[in-house]
């Protein structure tokens, strides 16, 4: 079952996120990732939700989202050419010495940034699609990952057209 990326433009009001997530859990749709923030329009937020399911389920997700009064637009980004990104912060064990410079090399290859240097750890910031983040995670694991946080996926369709489809 392929994952779909929904971009949901919503009224920026209290409770709207719980309406959206409540809908997913109530109807048995599984959220794989979720990201929320203000959109380009005032008083609105954009929620990006990754969900997998068969065609009927995905159709229901879209229709049920559209039924929420505070949802202004729903777009299945993955229906067309699109770009997607996630961001991860990885805190890795790094005693001063060879290990530390190896980690910095790995980060360099992935165009990741070292954003904090501690006496025996580094924090690496990496941006990319899920594959890239998984790859750097694999490479950093042998050094000892102390903590890892990642954002949900965000995505945009290519080209200048804005998500035209709505209700």
């Amino acid at each position: 079952m392929p994952a779909h990326i929904f971009s949901v433009l919503v009224e920026d009001c209290p409770g709207v996120l719980s309406r959206v997530t409540g809908l997913f859990s109530r109807r048995g749709f599984n959220i794989e990732s979720l990201a929320v923030g203000h959109s380009e329009q005032p008083d609105t937020s954009r929620i990006t939700i990754v969900v997998s399911g068969n065609d009927t389920q995905i159709e229901q997700v879209k229709k049920q989202l559209n039924k929420l009064i505070e949802v202004i637009k729903v777009l299945d980004i993955s229906e067309a050419e699109h770009v997607e990104r996630e961001l991860a912060l990885v805190k890795v064990k790094a005693e001063p010495g060879a290990g530390r410079s190896e980690i910095m090399q790995v980060a360099g290859i992935f165009r990741a940034k070292i954003i904090d240097v501690g006496s025996d750890s580094l924090v690496v910031e990496v941006t990319g699609d899920s594959g890239k983040i998984a790859a750097i995670e694999d490479l950093l694991r042998p050094y000892g990952i102390i903590e890892l946080v990642r954002t949900g996926k965000i995505a945009l369709q290519r080209g200048s057209a804005m998500a035209a489809q709505g209700k």
Binding site: G15, S18, R19, G22, R26, I69
Partner: peptide, 16 residues
């Protein structure tokens, strides 16, 4: 009550 009734109302409001 707005939290409790979210799944059983078409919509609900808490007037702030």
């Amino acid at each position: 009550i707005t939290g409790i009734t979210m799944p059983v109302t078409k919509h609900n409001y808490l007037v702030q």
